[in-house]
Amino acid sequence: MSDLIIKSLTKTFPSKVAVNHINMHIKAGQFVAFLGPNGAGKSTTVGMITGLTQPTSGQITLGSEHPQSPQYKRQFGVVFQNSVLDPTLTVQQNLELRAQMYTDFKSEWLNKLISDFALTSILNQDYGTLSGGQRRRVDITRALIHQPQVLVLDEPSTGLDIQTRNTIWTALLQLRQTTGLTVILTTHYLEETEAADYVYIIDHGDIIAEDSVAKLKQQYAQYQLILQSNDYPALLKLLDRTSLPYQQLDQAVTVTVPDARTAITTLNLLQPYLTTFESREGDMNDIFVTLTGKEIR
C-alpha cells in the first residue's frame, strides 16, 4: 500500500480557477474526507486524483505511479454521484461483466463483497428496478471488485436512508481493517466525517483548513451552554466576570466555552442562578459553517 501525494495541484478554466495549488498527503489506509460548499472544487479535485480530469499543473503520485499510467488507475475504485451500470442487466450480470475486465479477478472476493453489502437477495433483479440504497450498495461493490488500494466515494449517500448508510459504513470499516483500504469521501452528510482520520475543507478552490476531526473541533467548534435562570440580571453579572461570549435570547442565555473543563467550571460558578441548562458539543456542521459561512450559494 502506498501514500497518495498531491503537490501544488491546480485546475483552471477560462472563467475561473477551480482548484488552486493545493497540497495533500493521504497516508495509506486512512479515511480522508473532502468537505466544501457546492462549487468549492471537491469534485474537480476527485476527478484529477482518479485520472479522469487533466490538471492544469501540479503533481499526483501513488507510490511511484502517476495518473496517466494504467497501473495507477488500476489502484483506484470510484463510486460516482451517478451510476455507470447497465439498468437493463441484473445485478449479477453487471458485477460479472465488471469482473471479466480483470485477469486476476477472484470469485471468492466478489462473494465476500456480495455478502458484506447485503446483495444476495437482489442478485437476479435488473439494476434499473432497484431502490436508491440498493443501487448504491451495488455501485460500491462494483468499485471494489478489483481490490483497489484507494476507494473514492463522491457523494455516495445522497438520498439514502440511515439504515442503508449504516450498512455501507459498517462494511467499509471492516474492509479497511482487513485490507488497509484507503477511503476518500466527499459528502454533504457531515456526520459521516466524524470517523475520518483527516479532513480537508475546500472553498473557492483552496484548502482553508485541514486536520484531524478532534483538532478541527477544538479550533472551530466550541461547546455551547444554553442556560435558563430565576435571576437573569445576577446571572449576566457573573457571566461578565468570566469574559466568555454569550447571547441572551428570549428566556435563555447561550454561552460559548472552549472545552468541557471550562463548561463544568462555568456551570459551577453560575449554579446558584440556574434553573435548567443544556450542553452541546460542537460538531462538523459547526466547523463547516464557521469556515464557509451561513449564506446559501
Rank of each mutant, 00 (worst) to 15 (best):
T262I: 08
A263P: 11
L35N: 00
D250R: 08
D203I: 00
D154V: 03
Q163H: 15
D139L: 10
P272D: 06
F117A: 07
A234P: 08
S229K: 00
D206F: 08
Q271N: 15
I202K: 02
L4Q: 01
G293A: 09
T53G: 06
T167Y: 02
R165S: 12
I60H: 04
Y220Q: 10
P70T: 12
H188M: 04
L85G: 13
Q248R: 05
F13Y: 15
E192I: 11
L225A: 03
D116S: 13
N94M: 07
I162Q: 09
L235A: 11
A196G: 10
Q93P: 01
H204G: 05
T53I: 15
L110R: 05
Q30K: 15
I184W: 05
P245R: 05
H25Y: 03
K294M: 13
S229T: 10
L89G: 05
A209C: 06
K42Q: 00
M1G: 12
N230A: 13
L190D: 14
Q163C: 08
F34A: 11
F31R: 02
A118H: 12
T61N: 12
L227D: 01
S121P: 07
E281K: 07
Q163A: 12
Q224N: 12
P67Y: 07
N82T: 13
Y200H: 01
I208G: 05
G132Q: 09
V84N: 15
V17Y: 12
D283V: 00
L153I: 14
A195V: 14
L9H: 01
S279Y: 11
Y200A: 02
L123E: 08
T50P: 00
R135I: 10
L227R: 01
H25M: 06
V79M: 08
I296E: 13
K7T: 15
H21I: 02
T254H: 14
W109I: 11
I264V: 15
L153C: 13
K7V: 14
T178L: 03
A118I: 14
L269A: 01
H25G: 00
S107M: 05
T45Y: 00
Q125A: 09
I49P: 00
G51D: 08
T254A: 10
S83K: 03
V91E: 08
Q228D: 03
S229Y: 04
G180T: 10
Y220A: 07
D283C: 00
T179W: 07
R165W: 04
T178R: 03
V289Y: 07
R136L: 09
Q54D: 11
N23R: 05
Q147S: 07
S115H: 14
I49M: 03
Q251P: 11
E281S: 11
G36K: 08
T170I: 08
A221V: 04
S157R: 00
V183G: 01
S243C: 13
S57E: 04
S57P: 02
T45G: 01
W109V: 11
G205S: 07
I60W: 04
S121T: 14
T10H: 02
I226V: 15
Q68C: 07
V289E: 08
V32C: 10
T167C: 04
S57N: 02
Q248V: 05
Q174H: 15
A143N: 04
Q92A: 15
